[in-house]
Amino acid sequence: MFAISPVPKRGRKGNDILGPQNPDRMRQEPDTVCPPDTDHGKMPNMKWSFTDSHVRLEEGGWARETTVRELPTSKELAGVNMRLGPGVYRELHWHNESEWAYIIKGQCRISVLDLEGGSYIDDLEEGDLWYFPTGFPHGIQGTGKEGVEFLLIFDDGNFSEDSTFLLTDYIARTPKSILAKNFRVDEEVFNSLSEKEKYIFQGTIPGSLEDDRKKVTRSKHRFTHRMLKQEPKKFPGGEVRITDTSNFPISKTTAAAHVIINPGCLREMHWHPNADEWSFFLRGRARITIFAASGNARTFNYQAGDVGIVPKNNAHYVENIGDEPVEMLEMFKAAKFEDFSTEQWLAQTPATTVAEHLNLVGGNREKFLKSLSKDKTAVKAPLRKTRSMSDMAKALEELL
Rank of each mutant, 00 (worst) to 15 (best):
N81V: 12
K385C: 11
K333T: 04
E324K: 10
P350N: 14
G207E: 04
I121G: 02
M269I: 13
T386P: 05
Y317C: 05
G61L: 10
A255M: 09
F132T: 09
A78C: 03
I309W: 02
P8S: 05
D169Q: 13
D16L: 15
P236R: 11
F300S: 00
M26S: 01
S371E: 03
F136W: 15
L167F: 14
S53V: 03
P325A: 01
E65T: 14
V189H: 11
D37G: 12
T224E: 04
K145N: 12
G322Y: 02
T164S: 08
F183K: 06
A304L: 06
I17V: 11
A315V: 01
P236N: 03
K196A: 03
F190I: 10
E330M: 07
E231V: 11
L84T: 05
T245H: 06
T253I: 07
H258V: 01
N314K: 05
N45W: 00
K9G: 10
Q21K: 13
S163I: 05
E330C: 12
M43A: 15
D276A: 08
E268Y: 03
K394H: 09
L129V: 07
K312S: 02
T243P: 07
T289E: 00
A351T: 11
Q28T: 10
S279L: 02
V240F: 02
K229F: 09
E70Q: 12
E366S: 07
D211S: 14
Y302S: 00
S53G: 10
T352M: 10
D244N: 09
N320C: 06
S208G: 12
A351G: 09
L151D: 05
V310R: 06
R218Q: 15
A78N: 02
Y120G: 06
I290W: 04
S371W: 11
E210K: 11
N274R: 13
G207Q: 02
K394G: 00
F281G: 06
K9H: 11
S390K: 12
Q21H: 05
V216P: 05
L346Q: 04
G118C: 04
V326N: 02
A293C: 06
E356F: 08
G308E: 02
V68P: 04
N158M: 12
H40P: 06
T245I: 12
L369A: 01
R222D: 13
G60R: 14
H272D: 07
I171P: 09
D52Q: 15
A395E: 15
